[in-house]
């Protein structure tokens, strides 16, 4: 006989959602709000470094449009890039870092740059979840 277990699900407070949102929007801000200074410095700093090193190495950010057409294959890397929150949005607004020209692609560090930009966004999603969990009291 299977014993039925009642799982109690605690709802996260609204501040936890806001902290998560802040952590996504500005990498490190979520932990700053929670006064987790070292975490903010280390985890947020890693994302900022990934972003700027990625761009410096010639990597490019992804958006929906490729060669003037909307490409579905651009969506997964775009979601990864979008993890960097305001860094991605500001770059998109000023149209910086999206060019995928042959000169840039010829650089030895081009693929490294792309990888750094993708991983920076994915790491920030982890930061966001961490900040959310701490704010919701699910993590010490």
């Amino acid at each position: 006989m299977v014993k039925a277990e009642r799982v109690q699900v605690e709802e996260a407070p609204g501040t936890a959602w806001l902290t998560g949102l802040a952590a996504w929007f500005i990498p490190g801000l979520g932990h700053v709000i929670l006064k987790r200074w070292y975490r903010a410095l280390l985890m947020g700093g890693a994302v900022w470094i990934c972003f700027f090193v990625g761009l410096a190495m010639g990597g490019h950010l992804f958006d929906l449009v490729s060669d003037g057409q909307i490409a579905l294959l651009q969506i997964p890397p775009m979601i990864a890039n979008l993890g960097q929150g305001a860094l991605y949005i500001v770059s998109w607004l000023i149209n910086y870092g999206f060019a995928d020209d042959p000169v840039r692609a010829a650089r030895a560090t081009y693929e490294y740059g792309n990888t750094f930009l993708l991983i920076g966004g994915l790491l920030n999603y982890l930061n966001m979840l961490d900040a959310f969990d701490i704010a919701a009291g699910r993590k010490p």
Binding site: A46, T109, Y112, F116, L123
Partner: peptide, 25 residues
């Protein structure tokens, strides 16, 4: 050498985030 350095930087940044997120102490 540059490739190795870039790989090490990537590994360090990922390890920082993974390390900071996991475990208790």
């Amino acid at each position: 050498m540059r490739h190795f350095f870039v790989m090490a930087l990537f590994a360090a940044l990922a390890a920082i985030v993974f390390g900071a997120m996991a475990k208790d102490t």
